[in-house]
Design a protein around this nucleic acid. Structure first.
Lengths: 186, 186
DNA sequence: ACGGTTTATGCAACTAGTTGCACAAGGTGA
DNA sequence: TCACCTTGTGCAACTAGTTGCATAAACCGT
């Protein structure tokens, strides 16, 4: 149940409208907590009725009904509570690893191309993170907030590094396999 | 939509009853695709009505109604199709990274203890994987199935290695932070 | 001034996964 | 032998997230 807290965090960083939030979830926040605009609008509604956020009065009252939300004290308190509360790590679910395991019994046909595609996607993501690191975290700055945000970015970088390396190893292994068809033909 | 395929894979490796499957999902398969017994029973029912698996006739007809399932040709075909089909990687969702980002605005109070706990959990998991590697994948063996399964295990090992290292770095960073309370008091 | 695109907000239905409980059979100890 | 525990199976309700559509205003070219 993290979506409301992701939204509270985003709104504390900067009050935003639903659409702005959606955009921010496509970038920075979405790197470790993705959400669609429908989820966001629904959750904004809930958070508002729960009294954790409120819509800022618009400057132009009627023109395009964009609403900017800000976090209320109760919302900040709830976020602090949630952040400090102990949480168990959820078990992973990775379809790609599952497919590899399935390939061990039904054959590897077709899988290699997709591994290659995933490798490309992860390489692109890694490059993007590294750009952000160079742009936003030049050596020297070390406020507490920067430190924490940099730490989160490092997790992203290291994870993508893991995936690119693992996928390269997998592809190298595939190349040595006796044959791309089926290990146990039906 | 991977649960049915996880079950098909497991049943191809060895025909099992619902409870046996549940146990296997707690160990090897569950390392990258977890499922509860309720999910498994429900899915077994679906797979049977869809004609992808069937219950093996029991030796003792009435005694305790345990049912062993095996995969039918249609099931194997479906699994092969799914394994070969291209799939986009799903966006991650990681509450721990989210909490770190939240901590950048509401303060790090309470988080450190949970980071330590997570570190311990990941260390334990890593040790477990390494044991399995030593036990099941001694140097030398290299059938196709072994190679693929070893690859999957390596992913688990490398991921846990990443987490332990990252968490250690995070804790080291926390130790240097000006103060554990709040970076921006409300 | 009209038709098409973009921006912004939102509902409803669906899918996947989780939680909580129910029930029956068989074994175990007092 | 009866209360209790464990094993095995399963339903129902709930929560979280996704997909597909609906609506309306603003902007933009012709």
């Amino acid at each position: 149940m993290s979506l409301p807290h992701a939204i509270l965090t985003a709104l504390l960083e900067r009050p935003s409208s639903g659409l702005e939030l959606t955009r921010r979830f496509d970038r920075s926040i979405g790197y470790f907590w993705s959400a669609t605009h429908q989820q966001i609008y629904r959750e904004l509604g809930k958070l508002e009725t729960d009294g954790l956020i409120r819509a800022l009065p618009a400057e132009q009252p009627t023109r395009g009904q964009k609403k900017n939300y800000e976090v209320l004290p109760a919302g900040r308190a709830e976020l602090a509570r949630w952040t400090a509360a102990s949480q168990d790590p959820k078990p992973h679910r990775d379809p790609l690893l599952l497919r590899l395991r399935a390939a061990a019994v039904v054959g590897t046909a077709g899988l290699e191309a997709d591994l290659r595609r995933h490798l490309e996607l992860h390489e692109r993501q890694l490059a993007e993170y590294q750009e952000i690191e160079q742009r936003d975290f030049p050596p020297g700055r070390d406020g507490t907030e920067d430190r924490l945000r940099h730490l989160v970015l490092r997790a992203g970088i290291d994870l993508e590094t893991f995936w690119t390396q693992w996928l390269r190893r997998a592809l190298a292994d595939f190349a040595e396999l006796p044959d791309g068809e089926s290990t146990r033909p039906a």
